[in-house]
Simulated assay, not measured.
Amino acid sequence: MAASGGAAMKRVLALVAVLVLASGCGVRPSGVIPGENAPSGPPNGNIGHPATVYFVLNGNVVPVVRTGVGDVAADRVRALERGPDEDERAGGYTTELPPSFEPIAIGVSDAEIGVNVRELSPNAVAQIICTVLAAGGGVSGTITLSGGGQKLPPRACTR
């Protein structure tokens, strides 16, 4: 009789477990709740999506499309700070920016860097201006560049 009582107890426990699982966590069913489109693409910003930065090729400031650069202007200016990658250098791309010009504050209409902006070449200034403007969706508009206690008048992307 003990064997059949144990089997009955197992059945009761199994039935209780099924009922507990079937009852859920108290969330009541609802209709379809509309929402926005689900996120797509890789996480962490612009990884895999194109971003335009500006380097120098044959003495001219030109756009270079890169992947793996964040969406905001400061991320793109940091890409300038790192300079052309190996493939870009092999293709003749250079930079006229100092090795470590340290972007400090990059905004929509202004950019502050950690070097005296009056000591930068015209191409170096254009690299920064064009890259910041491209991060905003185009190359129109102007940027006021400052650094090292100096400030340049607002400049457009001239390439």
Rank of each mutant, 00 (worst) to 15 (best):
D85M: 06
N44W: 03
R78S: 04
L80W: 08
A79P: 11
V65E: 13
P39K: 13
V64Y: 14
V32H: 12
D87S: 12
G45E: 07
R76V: 00
T52Y: 06
R66P: 02
P43E: 07
D87T: 13
V56A: 02
G68E: 06
A74T: 13
D85H: 07
A79G: 07
E88H: 07
V53R: 09
V61K: 07
V53L: 03
E88K: 04
D75T: 14
A74D: 06
N58E: 01
V72N: 09
V61Y: 02
R89I: 01
E86V: 13
D85R: 05
P50C: 07
V72T: 12
G68M: 09
S40H: 14
G48T: 03
G83N: 11
P34E: 14
L80S: 11
G48H: 02
P34G: 11
P34H: 10
G48I: 01
G48F: 02
G83S: 13
R66M: 03
T67P: 02
A73I: 00
P42C: 12
A73K: 08
E88L: 15
D85S: 12
E88G: 10
P42K: 09
S40V: 15
N46M: 05
A74N: 09
R76T: 03
P50R: 09
R89E: 10
G41K: 13
N44T: 00
P50I: 12
N60C: 00
Y54N: 07
L80D: 09
A79K: 09
N44D: 15
P63H: 11
A74C: 06
D87Y: 02
F55T: 03
D87V: 12
R89C: 01
L80N: 14
D75Y: 12
T52F: 05
H49T: 11
V62T: 10
H49K: 14
G35P: 09
A79E: 15
R82S: 14
